[in-house]
């Protein structure tokens, strides 16, 4: 029996977000509407400061909207929860714990009630192996490279077996080669796990390569969804083959046009 795929697995309805700061109110998001299919990989792209992280944090439950509703798996998002795991931009590993201890903290929280200690350790080990870090499991975050830290962050999130994986510019701080490598790995991992993913990025190639759909945001204040682009490229995708692919380059230029023609950012 085939599983019924939910068309509106994650749903944002008329979401407004206004920040109240000492300097006054700031309307960051206005009328954001979109939904994500189960198992879909979505990228959110837009100029810096437009509100991409805000959208992600709303889905994560770290922020509450001033207006509108957010749903995940048919239920209103009331706060953060382990079924919506986050890979933070700056990895946010606890520096006093080893890589595997960092992952274990998450595993223990999610499965501690149902699993034995042995099973928890196995889960941790499996997650570390999944991102290819078995050799660095007992190292502290300050002893490993930026790319490895980001992998631990991904392992931590995946080990929770989330329904939705939220990634905030996960490869933003990495050099181009490491980034490409991790993008390929993420594609493989996502194909295996089949979980829904939302990734914030400002990298056009990354968005087209990884996503099923690209949500393009207008500039703030009062940013909203400008357009949503379907990426109908067969999987598995190979970056070298795609470089020559006409459709790929067309999609790429669509995103570029959106960012640099229709919603060009005025020089600050």
């Amino acid at each position: 029996m085939e599983k019924i795929v939910q068309e509106k697995y994650v749903q944002l309805e008329n979401v407004n977000m206004t920040f109240f700061t000492k300097k006054g109110t700031f309307e960051a998001l206005k009328n954001v509407n979109f939904s994500i299919r189960e198992g879909e990989f979505i990228s959110i792209i837009g100029h810096s400061g437009c509100g991409k992280s805000t959208v992600l944090n709303l889905i994560a439950g770290l922020l509450q909207p001033t207006d509108g509703n957010l749903f995940c798996a048919g239920r209103e998002i009331a706060g953060p929860g382990p079924e919506r795991a986050v890979v933070f931009q700056n990895h946010s590993l606890l520096p006093w714990l080893t890589c595997s201890e960092n992952v274990y903290l998450a595993v223990e929280r999610v499965f501690g009630a149902t699993d034995t200690k042995d099973q928890l350790k196995k889960r941790t080990q499996a997650a570390i192996e999944l991102v290819g870090l078995a050799h660095a499991a007992d190292k502290r975050p300050n002893e490993i490279s930026g790319g490895m830290k980001q992998r631990v962050g991904i392992a931590r999130a995946l080990a929770m077996e989330p329904k939705v994986l939220l990634l905030d510019e996960p490869f933003g701080a990495l050099d181009a080669l490491t980034r490409a490598h991790l993008q390929d790995e993420l594609m493989t991992i996502m194909a295996k796990s089949g979980c829904t993913a939302v990734m914030v990025t400002h990298d056009v190639d990354e968005a087209v390569l990884l996503s099923d759909r690209i949500v393009m945001m207008t500039n703030g204040p009062a940013a909203t969804i400008g357009d949503i682009l379907d990426v109908e490229l067969a999987r598995p995708r190979k970056r070298l083959e795609l470089a020559e692919d006409g459709h790929y380059n067309h999609l790429r230029s669509e995103v570029l046009k959106f960012l640099y023609e229709r919603h060009a950012k005025k020089a600050a």
Partner: peptide
Amino acid sequence: DYMNVAKVLNLSEWKIVTKILFPF
């Protein structure tokens, strides 16, 4: 960032104190 990790993981107050606050 660390507190966000605690929130996403839904850590108990005890875990927050022992694993995040105290070492920091």
